[in-house]
Amino acid sequence: MKEMSQYGMGTWNACFHCGNCTAVCSLTEEGILFPRKEIRALQMGLEDKLATSVEPWLCYYCGDCTETCPRDANPGELMMSVRRWLTAKYDWTGLAGLFYKSLSALIIAFVLVAIGIVAMGFVKDFNSEAVMYFGHILEFYLILTVFTIILIPNILRMFYFTVIKAKVNAPFGSYIAAIGNLITHMFTQVKTLKCDKQTVRWLEHFLLVMGYLGLLVITVFLDWFGTENQIIIYMGYITGGLVFVFTFLLMISRLSKARELNKYSQPTDWFFIIWLFLMGFTAFLVRLFIDIDLLNDHFWIYMVHLIVVSQWGMLLVPFGKWTHFLYRSFAVSFANLKKAALIKKLATAA
């Protein structure tokens, strides 16, 4: 219980279990009830129940529950905290938990990565071509390693917790269907649409994800900074622009704290947005500098970009909020398994 307060704000003690939050949520349905049950598990210290639950990932934090909570118990933030806790729980390296709990550890890690990149640049005499080539390779391998060593094992751990340990007994066919909706959700996060008054937010979000993925593909696989292909170059500008414009909007909304969901932000959330912004912005600048032939005079901009990208790839992607999007997409599939299992159970019972 006390541990959870390190992952976020804890006013959930005030909850008197009226069930308002579960009922007001547009995403709950028969068999998939949250956030009251998560609050209960937390209040009672039922760690296992919490660890095996997939429900926290289904929440998109629209803030309705918090806004209408009669006790100001802030269930929305609780769900966010549980997600952070779960991220740490799934992560076999234990680094995710460490970064959530300790801001200084996170900053140290950031500094170490930055120093590493600068050191590499120093080794390469800050030769732009060499450094950019190295950077490109680095990006490529980074993605590969992070996926194979950290993310995939963590997803498997998540599968173990939420499906195997939770004893979900779903029919085989549902597994195949689950893979199908995994893909749709990963790219569209279409479930957000079910949240009331969320269309604008979903569109923002969708464009941001598209921008981000596009930028990823264009820089890493299509070698945006090296290519001469005009189409790729323009695509790069568009995706980069999308990323930094929308993150900028996001930041403004966080600062103005207009929406309920943005009322409370953890430091890691800020890192996530700022780095996403920086990534898009620096990539945009780098290519711009290349196109107007300024890069050689302003090589530092690429260094900054590389540092940002490395920090992003090494720290934020495997251990930070990035994983939430990944886990969430899988969670939707796992939840469907659970539903299928429930139907099967009811069918056999009948």
Binding site: N13, F16, R71
Partner: peptide, 12 residues
């Protein structure tokens, strides 16, 4: 009651 429930008391 509201105040009490914020004092780390487990209601079962």
């Amino acid at each position: 009651y509201a105040q009490t429930s914020r004092k780390d008391i487990m209601f079962l």
